[in-house]
């Protein structure tokens, strides 16, 4: 193939690939554009592609006139709290499942896989009753506990495959050097597993940040409501649907994810190649 032909093929491929990428990203772009249009431009027929005038009024209203910041704080606590609880429990559990032998170990691992099958709707009412019985109804704690139902099996499963990939000799060598099992765990296994742990933590945090159903049923007060249910409850009502504010809220709900994503993307994809896709 001649050099110019190759060049134009490359050019065409880039054009094609970027068209596909932009089509995929279009809804996100539209969300952003809608959120900075004045409300009067929202209801134009036909809609204008670019805003005639840029306004941050909707963001200001969200931040100052609505409980958006409370919801944001709740969501942050939820994502952080769930991740912490789940990662600590799952790291210990996965280590135990991979490196120790005791009766029932394999069956336990299968059970973990089985809990994957449980639809959230099955657990939501018994969980709600449990929380009410413990006096935790309507608290962030109840949601953190509820979120472990789907996050823990997932995290355990991911971490187990990460840890399986760590060579056994490393730990054996540390043991020969006189380290106890826990010392070996802390000094050898944990550092090796760190990329996997970070990746698992990210997935857990994202799951918790985005959850809707449990938040809908378990929490009914603004003091503990996260963004997902809070935003809908606040802006979709029987007297108005605030599209501008909804889009501004959507943008702001996504910003923390973009930040996390930008910084930790390599762990995410690398974590996947190492762990998630091995049985």
């Amino acid at each position: 193939m001649s050099a110019p032909a190759r060049k134009s093929r490359r050019y065409l491929f880039n054009l094609f690939a970027w068209t596909v990428v932009l089509v995929i990203a279009f809804p996100l772009l539209w969300m952003l554009l809608t959120s900075i249009k004045p409300q009067s431009e929202l209801f134009l027929i036909p809609p204008a592609l670019l805003p005639g005038e840029i306004t941050f009024e909707h963001y200001r209203r969200l931040l100052t006139e609505t409980p958006f910041l409370t919801y944001l704080k709740n969501s942050a606590w939820l994502a952080g709290g769930t991740t912490l609880v789940v990662i600590v429990i799952a790291t210990l559990g996965a280590h135990s499942l991979v490196r120790f032998s005791y009766p029932g170990r394999e069956r336990l691992a299968t059970l973990v896989l089985f809990t994957y099958l449980l639809p959230s709707v099955v657990l939501v009412i018994p969980l709600y009753l449990l929380m009410a019985g413990l006096g935790l109804a309507n608290t962030l704690t109840s949601l953190i506990i509820a979120y472990t139902t789907f996050a823990l099996p997932y995290a355990l499963w991911l971490l187990r495959s990460f840890m399986k990939a760590i060579p056994e000799d490393l730990e054996s060598a540390a043991l020969v050097d006189g380290a106890s099992r826990m010392q070996a765990f802390v000094d050898v296994i944990l550092p090796q597993a760190m990329p996997g742990i970070i990746s698992t933590a990210m997935f857990t945090a994202i799951l918790a940040w985005n959850e809707y159903l449990y938040a809908l049923v378990l929490v009914n007060s603004d003091a503990a409501r996260p963004l997902t249910t809070g935003v809908i409850n606040m802006l979709v009502t029987s007297f108005n649907i605030e599209w501008s504010l909804l889009m501004a809220a959507s943008v702001m709900m996504s910003v923390p994810l973009i930040v996390v994503f930008a910084f930790l993307q390599r762990y995410l994809t690398r974590g996947f190649s190492a762990g998630a896709i091995k049985g």
């Binding site: 009410a132 809908l216 003091a223 009502t237």
Partner: peptide, 23 residues
């Protein structure tokens, strides 16, 4: 006094959960 919103389409489920949980 804590005011909390509910919605025309959402109150049946929310109240059912609240009544069931005694909260």
């Amino acid at each position: 006094v804590l005011f909390e919103k509910t919605s025309d389409e959402g109150y049946p489920a929310q109240l059912a959960a609240a009544f069931a949980g005694g909260n």
